[in-house]
Design a protein around this nucleic acid. Structure first.
Length: 591
RNA sequence: GCACGGGUAGCUCAAUUGGAUAGAGCGUCGGCCUCCGAAGCCGAAGGUUGUGGGUUCGACCCCCGCCCCGUGCACCA
């Protein structure tokens, strides 16, 4: 908010001094310490180095060309060239006042001409397999990015690229035909599908003829066999029921669910085009994309060093048996998305093990459609692997995976135990509802809080923690703030009629200053695909509110403090609620 | 071997384009409900940011070397 106003003044002043210079990196940020004022800029020191001039002199020259007297006291130049901005009395209050009447909530909605169309690809579970804890990160991260970008005014298209095609269906079809337990399928469809898959998988390893039969079923499916197609569709339907149940609980919604199978019709064309263009060629019976030598060896995803020599590291787009694979589908998907939605950005939210794959896909696409590729920003927002409590990789095939539904159940149960203890006065329906919001919030927050690139050590206790830097803390402060406003009854007319706020106490000022930075954290989340920045912001805000609440009586205070503090409660509640919503977390009215 | 991450307090993690005295939670120790919700607040202890150099007014961050951990590297997705 205010930092943007100051920033544009500063940029204008720099431009006045150096016409034509790129000022994007000239930033104004909240002061690192309130003793330096409200806002600061460090950018002139970097600029001075670049221009080889004295930084203090540059700061003096820039400040002389900058007029911020409507908002600030005279700008102070500190140390080697920091600019410190100290707001004039009333400046913060006027921003709060505007927020109270609904002019903004401390962030700016992107101007229409700057709005982006962003496709976000996340979750992507596999058909016929239970969603496990490994799916949560992509789902929660993607959903949060989607919500933040939408709030900022961008056009977001969320697409669930489910795994509904591939070699596993040979085994599933064989199992379905030879060992399906109809009653079990009825009672627990995914459990039964998982069972037959595992049984056939073992059979394939032990008996070559079983493997052959599974392959034969797959070939029939791919050739369009009616019976197999029917079974395949039924397996997808049963899986979608499971997905929808989980997504319903998580509050996750997709605009599209275009699985891998959707792109089948285009795969032969993708391969033949890449062959024609000389991007791909045959090798050992398969078709693969190789390096074109235009990139430095270290950056080329199609080269790898082995024993001191750079050798080919191709991406296969057609196997020697004629089947297509992952890269082929992703290229077709990319092509389809660009043709269909003309996005300015596509964000893939998957685990970090797929980094090389996406670098290859992006690079291959760039060679296939250079013009289209330069018009879109392709982002692989990857996240770290999930590890077991022992720090070793959390392998899905080991059989002891934690199912997502079980995790969510456990989260709600643990939360309910606390609610029963803290709120025996509520009826059981209300208790369950609060426990649901708290339990699910805890899981989501825990998932979003760490830097996404860090590896993830799965722990029940950590995942379901209800004290400290958790969603519960933020939810709790949010309900307290909301409660004060409700208890006030009639809201002060001054909120809508004119300047009546007056911030005085340090804890009031600190809280107000932090409210103004909401937009900064939203922008950062959108730019860097890092919802943890929003978690940090909200935790800090909740913490500042708690300190304020502890030291400043609200309802019993005399005017104008009462009106001011009530306004802080109201705005804090609004920002916390909006921020939690961006994380996909619900804020209970009371808890 | 090469590439991409990571290494920060006892543990789990932050640190806003290189910025001012590296911050939280958990755990430990000690305080605070006669006062709008104690799922809370205040305080203490705890650090040579893996390691050795370099760049500069200033480095957890950038550059070079080395040591650990994870992941990936041709027909799985």
């Amino acid at each position: 908010m205010l930092h943007l106003a100051l920033e544009s003044r500063l940029q204008a002043a720099v431009t006045a001094l150096y016409p034509g210079i790129v000022v994007d990196s000239i930033r104004v940020r909240p002061a690192s310490d309130s003793k330096f004022g409200d806002y600061q800029s460090n950018a002139l020191m970097a600029l001075a180095r670049e221009r080889k001039v004295n930084p203090r002199q540059l700061a003096t020259d820039v400040v002389a060309r900058m007029d911020v007297t409507d908002w600030c006291e005279p700008v102070e130049i500190a140390g080697p060239g920091f600019l410190n901005f100290r707001l004039r009395p009333g400046a913060l209050e006027s921003v709060l006042q505007a927020a109270l009447v609904g002019e903004h909530l401390f962030f700016s909605v992107t101007a229409p001409e700057l709005r982006r169309t962003v496709v976000i690809d996340y979750s992507s579970p596999n058909v016929a397999k239970p969603m496990h804890v490994g799916h949560i990160r992509s789902t929660i991260l993607g959903e949060s990015l989607s919500r933040v970008l939408r709030l900022l005014g961008h056009r977001v298209i969320s697409d669930n690229h489910i795994g509904d095609w591939g070699t596993q269906f040979g085994m599933l079809l064989l199992g379905w035909k030879t060992m399906l337990d109809a009653a079990a399928l009825d009672a627990d469809p995914i459990g039964e599908l998982e069972r037959i898959y595992k049984r056939v998988n073992i059979g394939c390893k032990e008996q070559p003829e079983t493997l052959e039969r599974a392959r034969a079923e797959l070939v029939k499916l791919q050739a369009g066999d009616e019976e197999n197609l029917k079974i395949w569709r039924e397996m997808i339907r049963l899986s979608q029921v499971q997905f929808d149940t989980i997504y319903g609980r998580l509050g996750v919604r997709f605009d599209h669910t275009l699985g891998e199978s959707f792109y089948n019709p285009w795969l032969p064309e993708v391969v033949s085009r890449l062959l024609e263009l000389g991007i791909a060629r045959e090798s050992e019976g398969a078709v693969a994309v190789f390096s074109d030598g235009t990139l430095p060896q270290k950056e080329d995803p199609f080269l790898i060093s082995r024993d001191g020599e750079w050798v080919a590291n191709p991406a296969l787009i057609r196997k020697s048996d004629g089947a297509f694979n992952y890269a082929t589908t992703d290229l077709a998907t990319l092509d389809y998305r660009l043709r269909t939605w003309s996005p300015s950005e596509i964000i893939y939210v998957t685990d970090g093990r797929q980094q090389l794959h996406f670098r290859q896909v992006f690079q291959a696409f760039h060679r296939w459609q250079p013009q289209a590729a330069t018009a879109v920003r392709l982002t692989h927002a990857w996240f770290g692997s999930i590890l077991g409590e022992d720090g070793k990789p959390f392998k899905t095939r080991s059989g002891d995976t934690v199912k997502l539904a079980d995790l969510l159940d456990e989260a709600e149960e643990r939360a309910l135990r606390v609610v029963l203890e803290k709120r025996p006065d509520l009826d059981s329906v209300a208790q369950r509802e609060v426990a649901r919001k708290i339990g699910l919030g805890a899981v989501k927050y825990q998932d979003l809080l760490p830097n996404r690139q860090s590896d993830y050590v799965f722990s029940w206790d950590k995942m379901l923690a209800l004290t400290g830097n958790t969603a519960v803390y933020v939810q709790y402060q949010c309900t307290r703030a909301g409660k004060v406003v409700r208890d006030a009854g009639v809201l002060p007319a001054a909120w809508t009629s004119g300047p009546a706020l007056c911030l005085q106490e340090p804890s009031e000022l600190a809280l107000a200053r932090h409210l103004l930075s909401f937009g900064l954290s939203l922008e950062a989340v959108g730019d860097e695909c890092r919802p943890n920045l929003l978690c940090n912001y909200l935790y800090e805000l909740a913490s500042l509110y708690s300190r304020f609440y502890d030291s400043c009586p609200v309802l019993k205070a005399a005017e104008p403090a009462r009106t001011t503090r009530l306004a802080l409660c109201e705005l804090t509640a609004r920002v916390l609620r909006q921020g939690l919503d961006c994380l996909g977390i619900e804020a209970p009215e009371s808890m």
